[in-house]
Simulated scan of single mutants.
Amino acid sequence: MTGTLGRRPWRRAFNIILNSGVSGLDPVRSRSVMGANRFFLMSAAVCLPWVVAIAVAHPPATLVPALTHLAMVCGWIVCVDLNRRRHYIAASITGLVLPIVQFGYLSWLFSTEAGFSLPLLTVGALAFVLFPPRQWRVAAAITAVAALVLVRMYLAADFEVPEVAVSDNWLTGASVGNVLVVVMIVSVLALFNNHYFVRERRRNDELLAEAHVAARTDALTEVYNRRGIGPFLSDAVRSGEYALALLDLDRFKRINDRLGHGAGDVVLSNVARTLVDAVGSRGTVARWGGEEFLVVLPHMSLGAAVGVIEDARRAMADEYGADAFLEPVTISAGVAHAGRHAGKEETLRLADAKLYEAKESGRNRVLGASVAVTARD
């Protein structure tokens, strides 16, 4: 446990470096900067041991190329700092030009047999990671430069024979090492792109799920809206016997006039919560419009449905009575029961008619009836 805790500050510091200059950027640009930082640090770590390998190849003749290789490694570290200071284009151009120059120099010094030309094959892929899509011309230009350097390496005679005398074993080892470098760069690029793709796909899925919920949910009361309750209503009609209840707050305009619309919104939100708690798993609640709610009660007889809504009415009267609230809050409700294959439109009309009747007969009451003649949608 202690060892894990001890590594965490280093991990945080490393992540801070990797994400240097990313804050406040759009996702496309931040992807490029993150990819650049990872390339700079990874390449610096991979190429640092090469400084020693080049230096011992044939001293003192190979000390200068070793120092230029060290300069390239230091240049990549500077590029991370350039990104931190938001000099993104300068960092990316510098970070790609440095290896083109250095590996071209090493290929001339040790010949193409040493394999120092191979890392230039990755410049094109790196360029389109380090630069965002809108700067594709810069990426294409750097790719073209790397391609021209490669072509010259393999066509020009001065790249065929080493300029310094190094052993065949060193040339073979350098060639194998450069193959491994290319494999590592390509693998890390693929891993980074896959990580970024998975992260963005997960984020898109989350946003899509949030949008789906928002499209089906009333923002104020957090219950279903008309679109959201639609599938439950259709399922109830197909499943057989069901009931629909339309509930309306009594004298809600008076609440708004006396307490203000902000308080009215709070009342609606609290009423929805109380209604959901009272109905429970027996039905589904939706805001039908304004201060009106719809409750879908599948597989329920008229008596049972009236009982459920009566429980909700009593819960509302108890919780928001005159003693507990500045303005008493009550509801009136109309319940319509329908048999198998009864149409939802006619059932809704009957529920609305019973709601109107409940309002006209004194409010704060529940009235119900069954659809006399079944109808199909």
Rank of each mutant, 00 (worst) to 15 (best):
A127V: 11
A245T: 04
A57M: 10
V182Q: 08
A322S: 14
A147Q: 10
E241H: 07
V373Y: 11
M153N: 14
F116V: 06
A13I: 01
G24L: 09
I77Y: 07
L249E: 02
A342K: 00
L106C: 08
M72S: 12
L249N: 02
F159H: 11
D235L: 00
G283R: 01
H337D: 01
H261V: 01
E222K: 15
R29T: 12
V151H: 13
L98Y: 01
R365F: 06
E163K: 05
E210P: 01
G321D: 09
A147L: 14
R238H: 08
Y224R: 15
A322N: 09
G104P: 04
R376I: 12
A322E: 13
Y105F: 15
G75C: 07
V78P: 00
A263G: 03
A146V: 07
L171E: 10
S234W: 03
A263V: 11
W170D: 05
D257P: 04
S332T: 07
F252K: 04
T62V: 07
D168T: 11
A144V: 11
T4N: 12
G289P: 08
A139I: 03
H261I: 01
A144K: 12
C74P: 07
A36L: 05
V371H: 00
V149H: 05
R203C: 06
P298S: 02
A61P: 10
R8L: 15
R137E: 14
L268K: 06
G35F: 13
A245W: 10
L302N: 09
S281P: 05
A157S: 15
F128V: 11
N83A: 02
G339D: 06
H341W: 04
M42L: 13
G35I: 06
A140E: 08
P49N: 07
A236F: 01
A315D: 02
G6S: 11
S187Q: 08
R227I: 10
F159T: 13
D158N: 08
S30F: 07
T374Q: 14
A36V: 01
A263L: 00
F40I: 14
R365Y: 03
G24H: 02
V176C: 04
C47S: 10
R282P: 07
Y154R: 05
L25R: 13
V64G: 07
W136L: 10
E345R: 09
A342H: 08
N225C: 10
Y224M: 13
L268H: 05
M34H: 11
S117C: 12
F103P: 02
R313C: 05
L180D: 03
R363M: 03
V271Y: 13
S30W: 01
P231Y: 10
E327Y: 09
M316P: 03
R287K: 10
K344Q: 09
A114L: 03
W76T: 11
V51S: 10
N256F: 03
H195K: 14
V138W: 07
S20R: 00
K253M: 05
R363K: 15
L67F: 15
